[in-house]
Nucleic acid binder design. Structure first.
Length: 108
RNA sequence: AGAGCAAAUCAGACAACUGCGGGCAGAAGCCGUAAGGCUCUGCAUGAGGAAAGUCCGGGCAUCACAGAGCAGGGUGCCGGGUAACUCCCGGUGGAGGAAACUCUAAGGAAAGUGCAACAGAAAAUAACCGCCGAUAUAUUUCGGUAAGGAUGAAAAGGCGAGGUAAGAGCUCACCGCGAUUCGGGAGAUCGAAUUGGCGUGUAAACCCCAUCUGAUGCAACACCCACAAAGACUAUGGCUUGCUCGGCUGUCAGUGGGUGGCUUGAGGUAUAUAGAAAUAUAUAUCCUAGAUAGAUAGUUGUCUAAUACAGAACCCGGCUUAUAGAUUUGCUUUUAUU
RNA sequence: AGGGGCAUAGUCAAGCGGCAAGACAACGGACUUUGACUCCGUCAUUCGUUGGUUCGAAUCCAACUGUCCCUG
């Protein structure tokens, strides 16, 4: 997957300075990256589950992002942190939470 | 039909659309100082039986070579297999089960040291009570004695007879144990005979004996590009393994990015041969993930018992642990009927 | 990915084969008109779990579970 947030300092900047929205399944951070495209970063901590479970959550978040990718305004770094409830979430739950965050943030 | 034992296989399938990873082919562009990378189209392809735990073994790489000794560590019935093994196969002894069968860290306690709480006379050079003899005399001293005695996990081979002052493997029969010889076996060991007269347990306590072992792990290591180019210590040094020897030599110290290492391998499948088996050999055939913040997802339909445990990260061989279910083969035993 | 440690009462902990110390907390009692302080007493039936060695295991061995740390 191209255009992802990789550096640790970018994540730390998002947690400290970025805007934040919280749902049952996700925590959604974003900030202006002064470029002409969007970047996605996903955090799933080890306390949520084993490797299979964490990989599934990452795929669902990535699928939700790619479904809404073209509707978003450009020029933001987006960090999505999975919460413990997301371990048993379906795709629809994740997509709904993602839509809610987008609407709240005004990225659309 | 019930109960059980052993071995093996599978780990959802098919179709459509959208999307992702690397590979091959093609096409023009774009980004970057450079090494190099990105975009588009087509084709086929893309997680496991444990990928897990990291408990062992090996490959591979670096340390000049991988050398010697000590220390430290591993292993420990016998034979075979293997690249190697704390693995596998077959056997011996022991334990469990009615049986099929299962389990087994199983060398040495007579090389030495240590430990055995409490209880008990005594826990390893056994004399408190008792028994017997002598002395002495009114219950004192000396000696003999392991048959009997509370305790304890364990009490000086067991049990019976003879024997004796009382006793005792002191003697004998049977049983147990050790040694020697003979026979079977490749060996562990088994059987028989002769002989000894036999002081407990613990080595997953130290240890002894035999045998194996250099250290560090792919974020190893090799190479490329850009920037920086100023330093520190220098043979009485530095590196090499914990130490000693031996050996080598100027050594140490940056930042950011990229490429290789990276998947054809002690490989898989089928057949044949050798073998009791593990396994080996030969022939044919196949190529089947290789990412680097890390690729398998979403939607829909059909079938189905299939909703479990669970995600490759240098690669192999094992072991251990987790696991819904489904299927097959062989065997034991109980009951009923013929 | 590689390597190392820890687990004992509600909490902090000692213990290195033979009775599981101690402190705080909690509870009960004494002192006091009452409370605090102080004093006395009680509190581990299975030492993370499961096996093994041993007469005997918190301790030794093996396999698991949880948790913490180190290298980068």
């Amino acid at each position: 997957m191209k255009n992802t947030v990789k550096l640790n300092r970018e994540f730390r900047y998002a947690y400290r300075k970025g805007k934040k929205f919280v749902t049952d399944y996700l925590v959604f951070y974003f900030y202006d990256n002064r470029q002409s495209l969007n970047k996605l970063g996903i955090t799933v901590s080890a306390s949520i589950g084993k490797a299979v479970c964490r990989n599934r959550i990452k795929r669902l978040i990535r699928a939700a992002y790619s479904a809404r990718k073209d509707e978003l305004n450009k020029g933001y770094n987006i960090i999505v942190v999975a919460r413990n409830k997301a371990a048993n979430a379906s795709y629809e739950d994740i997509l709904k939470a993602f839509d809610y965050c987008i609407r709240k943030s005004g990225l659309k």
